[in-house]
Amino acid sequence: FKVLVLDPFTRDIIAPLLKVNELRKYGITLHLMLGADRQPISDVPAIYFVAQTEQNVKRIALDVSVPLYDTFHLNFSSPLPRPSLEELASECVKTDSISRVNKVYDQYLGFVSLEKGLFSLAQPRSYVKLNDPAAKDTDVEQAVAGMVEGIFSVLVSLGVVPIIRCPKGGAAEMVASELEKRLRDHLVTRNNLFTEASQAGGSFQRPLLCLFDRNFELAVAVQHGWTYQPLVHEMIGLNLNRVTV
């Protein structure tokens, strides 16, 4: 008997992957939202799978201090920044509840797999955020950082370090250079996330990652796929492989 606690972002990650009955197969009898009012359940381990936001960390610290559950297994969809981890630790020490936190994991799962060969970074209105003339620098940086973190999660999951190509002078270049920096910073550490994959007989050939900018790739915007799925997407709207009529 285990409780799974999610936030809207991680709920969208899990939804296309596992159905409720499949969650039961893995002992998850209850799945709840972090932001909702929840009753304490004693003698039950809780698995938290949430985004690495400050708000989430604060809420988790509160849950641990109550305590809402017996033990806490904390999983963040992307790496938890050091200051947030320290804040979580100090809050738990303050309320003398640190022993209830079993483990804290960085999961590198910050993307939504919709099909075998299709994923989404699940960043709504990202085009507007990047192209709005009134957008602040911090908003653009935040949007780019979100994309970089999502693509980095994909690369860690695949265990590959790609060669990156992009057009010059746009959002795609910003994403590409930040991603390159992120990869370089990570690869200098000895036991990095790509070591295991390369030792397990990973390919010596590096894949090619092409980042396109919709402003320059105008053909994409006017090209329409003539299959059932794009038709449904355009007529009714397709979200997380689901259609709401």
Partner: peptide, 19 residues
């Protein structure tokens, strides 16, 4: 298969195994 890799990672997490 990226989707399968993500499913495996999620299942590992639900089974309380380390990543």
């Amino acid at each position: 298969d990226l989707r399968q890799k993500q499913i495996d990672a999620v299942v590992k997490m639900l089974n309380l195994n380390s990543p």
